[in-house]
Amino acid sequence: MTTATTSPADRLVPGPRALAGSGLDTVRRHPLLVVLALMVLVFQLTTGSFLDGGNLRGIATDAATLTLVAVPLALLVISGYLDLSVGSTVALGGLVAGWLAGQQHLSPVVAVLGALVVGAAVGAVNGILCCYLGLSSFIVTLGMLTAVRGLAQQLFPLPLSGFGSGFAWLGGSRIAGIDAPVVIALLVLVAGALFLALTPAGRHVFAIGVNREAAHLSGISVRRTPFALFVVTSVAAALAGAIKASVLDSAVAGTSGAGFELTVLTAVLLGGVALTGGSGSVFGVLLGVLFLGCLQNGLTLLNVPTFWQQMAQGIALAAGAALAYFGPRLTR
């Protein structure tokens, strides 16, 4: 069900010219598609319940917050930057939204908006330091990962919970039979794909990632677009935090979103986005997210211990890198 709804997004990524002969070409460009299909098949055969509606719904909900952050992060990586701070921004966003809704008894809409503003502030700091002052985004956002986590713990030393039924709507309600987080993730996917294919800034993202100097000499503002992507990525992380807080009805400064930054980055890289910038697609990111989601879910169904699951995730990333490197050569 999830794959069916995303095929239009796939077509939009490479532009209308890909409408002809997209089938085989898509597989060649995204070898992960084959791996994902095989994995789903194996899990279905071994568990017998993998493709049940309830299980798929669980996978989709888990993948939703990942997708929400992975799409803007992918755009940022394509433009040649990196954001490792999203895990802590998730925590801060969830805490701020929960505190506004639960402790301050504000409307859920205001609570979520508050989280988004805080996210935008974190992204603006990242963006100013990386895009306008030219510092390494790896170092800046690694520092922000720690700094934002520290800020969250200072502001909210105690775990928060009991956010009220209004706030629970964000994570728990259904729109046309689909969970709200999944609807948001789908909107983000479509928006990301449309942005890359149909807007001038979408092309500029690639150009800046491939050759920043040449883009500058072509009169493109090489700072504004990546700056905006930093802000959007952090806003998305804060929203993901609010969704998680709503689903769990709790938020903890020390542990919420811990390690999330690496899971998102794993999904982005598995999806074929080059860490060196300049190439990648939203459809690939979706595959990366689904791959991680299905892997984790399937292994849980098979009662594989968490440690083994983590190992599998790590090996998948290394294998994904090898696949991205050798895949195109094998199919040629």
Binding site: R203, H204, F206, A207, N211, E213, A214, A215, S218, G219
Partner: peptide, 19 residues
């Protein structure tokens, strides 16, 4: 170093500032 976007398409290379 200063002119080309090697992995981008010919059309993107030629029309980048015009988009």
């Amino acid at each position: 170093r200063q002119g080309l976007f090697p992995v981008l398409s010919a059309q993107d290379n030629a029309l980048l500032p015009a988009i």
